[in-house]
């Protein structure tokens, strides 16, 4: 049943121009940046050859590209998640799902799976750029895998947060803006507290950026994975509870 709902979510996303436009805009902008980074790499190449233990093409071209991609997607994901539940509430179509013989958790997981499928499409398209490097050189495959997983987990956690905030309101704009606010806050949360030694470590653990940065650099730590999985599970449980609670109001 989760699959039935996920499938409808994906169909609905691609029936409206929204998903297409987002994919097209992101691919164009990042494609342009990819070219610029590549150009930069050719300029640096003569100097790099003279150094010992130099950063490779993955570090110079792909890691910075994905850093920018993460920030752009931080602004874009709220637009993808805002309609998930808020739109159904506004159009009063949620009762179709609620009256059907399926559990609330299946509804939420189905909607989330739909978003994840979109994310996989998006990130896979982005990864075509690094993969194109195989035509001329040999990028670090392990690092690329880590970057791919890192981007998937990052966006999957964005989607979980967005889904929850979409379940709180009928207004899509409010859902988008609040999602953006929460994501940005999680991004910059480690900017303060460097003067307090304990505070810094807690805030640094909360920061999405720190975990993402490690994965972009090819550092695959189970604590990072645990962070993402906890975040995703937490917000999905909150969403299910929120929808269940609304029946009681």
């Amino acid at each position: 049943m989760i699959w039935v709902i996920a499938r409808r979510e994906v169909v609905a996303m691609f029936l409206s121009p929204m998903a297409w436009i987002i994919l097209a805009v992101i691919q164009t902008i990042l494609g342009y940046m990819f070219l610029a980074n590549l150009d930069n790499f050719f300029l640096l190449q003569p100097q790099l050859i003279q150094l010992a233990n130099t950063p490779g093409v993955t570090d110079i071209v792909i890691t910075p590209l994905m850093q920018v991609a993460a920030i752009i997607l931080l602004m874009v994901m709220p637009l993808m998640t805002m309609r998930s539940i808020a739109e159904e509430k506004r159009n009063r179509t949620l009762s179709l799902l609620v009256s059907a013989p399926i559990a609330m958790s299946e509804i939420v997981l189905g909607k989330y799976l739909g978003l994840v499928l979109f994310i996989v499409t998006l990130v896979s398209m982005l990864m075509l750029m690094p993969l194109s490097l195989y035509l001329g050189t040999s990028p670090d495959g392990g690092k690329l895998l880590s970057i791919y997983l890192g981007m998937l987990l990052l966006l999957a956690s964005f989607a979980a947060i967005g889904l929850y905030l979409s379940s709180l309101t009928e207004n899509q704009t409010i859902a988008a803006i609040s999602t953006f606010g929460v994501l940005l806050m999680l991004w910059i949360i480690d900017w303060i507290g460097s003067s307090v030694s304990n505070g810094q470590s807690v805030l640094a653990y909360l920061s999405i950026l720190k975990h993402h940065q490690a994965m972009l650099e090819g550092v695959f730590k189970s604590s990072d994975i645990a962070y993402y999985l906890l975040l995703i599970t937490g917000f999905l449980v909150l969403t299910i509870r929120q929808l269940d609670r609304e029946r009681l109001l």
Partner: peptide, 9 residues
């Protein structure tokens, strides 16, 4: 329901 729960698109 009172408002038919249909997907307009």
């Amino acid at each position: 329901p009172e408002h038919p729960p249909v997907y307009r698109e």
